[in-house]
Design a protein around this nucleic acid. Structure first.
Length: 417
DNA sequence: TCTGGGGTCCTAGGACCC
DNA sequence: TCTGGGGTCCTAGGACCC
């Protein structure tokens, strides 16, 4: 049996850990630049605040009803997530961290003795006791059915927060109550096409022949169908696969037209991306940059994109800066008001097994000791920058209502008086 | 005024190989 | 008029996830 452990309104719950006064108040968390609503507590959902809605559209109405709002604080959420996952790893020998707020656990074996439901309740109360994060736990014979169980808990707001789907009857009932759009792996486009075929619920999908779905749609949907019928097609991936690409991109709070400012901002993105790359112990040989204006403005949509293949894989920030700073002026248009930019690294190879180059004297020697030292200093809160970086000279991101970094910064430690 | 950020997998088609 | 068979690799685009 597989359990899906899913944190309830995760970002909002993180904000509540150190603010017990917010326990029963509506809480929402906003995206970067305080743009959209990306997390809502139960109370905020009850006020009809939808996921992804632009903040400026609901701000007045929400605040008037006594709602509380936070800018996103990913330093906090990331740290709380690590703690939750660490507890889960103690509870099962096979745990797959699926996202910042979700994990799949293998229960077979452990649950034989005490039963799945009891096991679920133990996990739930341990997480809550040790981290203060409320979770719900859906349990089923496959990942997709565990997801269905989790959806049921949410839909009916089950007070136990644990639901096991293990017999034919309970599975059939749950599938009939799950609209097709709520099935894991079915998004809005597929749902539309399926509804045309009279597939309106998870149950309808599960009744179709797998071969037909494979031929008419895809192997992906075929697997979903089989999983709904209890046939395990998706394994628990408890060994984290290495990343295949790394992206750093941001929207700006204010439009940017100045090329030198764009350079500085993008150089920050490059430094951050390279740091992530090194922490993954990888080297990369493909670097891309894009700059664009807003979809939502009246002027024509402009998006500049450029890609550069390095002659040899590298993880040195300076190698990437060199090529990015060559590409940027080629894409820049002086009449465009830019509102978003990003850097992407791809084509990775393991840093310990990089192929040698034919003419090494043509290439700057990778100074990995320097990069390692910089990473360490930055990690421990003594920031160092390369001269071309923005280094906080101007801040393209706006977060007006951000909470303290309670758990990751000494200066932000909560005080008890 | 104000609309997020970061990923994955699969498929089809083109280029190329023998 | 008639134009092989089998393969790999890469890329773009489409779909999905949180």
């Amino acid at each position: 049996m597989i359990a899906l452990v899913d944190c309830d309104s995760f970002y909002a719950s993180c904000e509540r850990i150190f603010r017990p006064d917010l326990a029963h108040k509506p809480v929402v968390v906003l995206s970067n630049n305080d743009g959209c609503v990306i997390a809502r507590s139960k109370e905020a959902k009850a006020l009809d605040i939808n996921m992804g809605v632009p903040w400026f559209k609901v701000k007045k109405r929400y605040l008037a009803k006594g709602g509380v709002v936070f800018s996103s604080n990913f330093a906090l959420y990331g740290d709380i997530s690590r703690r939750v996952m660490a507890v889960l790893k103690m509870m099962s020998p096979r745990t797959e961290i699926y996202s910042i707020d979700e994990a799949f656990l293998e229960l077979s074996g452990i649950s034989k003795h005490i039963g799945c439901e009891k096991m679920g309740i133990t996990i739930k109360s341990t997480i809550n006791k040790w981290t203060k994060i409320p979770v719900r736990i859906g349990i089923g014979p496959t990942k997709t059915l565990a997801k269905v169980a989790s959806y049921q808990i949410k839909k009916y707001d089950l007070p136990s927060r644990v639901l096991v789907l293990n017999d034919k009857h309970s599975i059939e009932k749950a599938l009939k109550e799950t609209p097709i759009i709520k099935v894991w792996g079915v998004g809005s486009r597929l749902a539309k096409k399926l509804v045309v075929e009279n597939v309106e619920t998870a149950w309808d999908l599960s009744r179709l022949p797998p071969e037909y779905i494979k031929q008419k749609f895809s192997v992906v949907l075929e697997r979903t169908l089989r999983e709904l019928n209890g046939e395990q097609c998706l394994e628990i991936e408890d060994i984290q696969p290495t990343k295949k690409q790394i992206m750093v991109s941001r929207s700006f709070a204010h439009k940017v037209n100045d090329l030198s400012m764009l350079h500085a901002i993008i150089n920050d993105f490059v430094a951050r991306a390279a740091e992530k790359l090194r922490s993954e112990q990888q080297k990369c040989s493909s670097v891309s940059v894009f700059i664009r204006n807003s979809y939502f403005r009246k002027e024509e949509y402009e998006c500049g994109f450029n890609n550069f293949i390095l002659p040899y894989p590298s993880d040195d920030t300076r190698d990437f800066l060199k090529v990015v700073n060559k590409m940027l002026p080629l894409m820049y248009k002086s009449n465009v008001q830019y509102s978003k930019a990003g850097v992407m690294l791809s084509s990775f190879s393991n840093s310990s097994t990089v192929q040698d180059v034919v003419f090494p004297e043509l290439h700057q020697k990778c100074n990995s000791a320097l990069m390692k030292t910089m990473d360490k200093l930055n990690y421990y809160g003594y920031p160092v920058y390369l001269a071309s970086q923005n280094a906080g000279r101007f801040n393209p991101i706006q977060r007006k209502m951000v909470s303290p970094k309670y758990t990751t910064n000494w200066n932000d430690l909560p005080l008890v008086r």
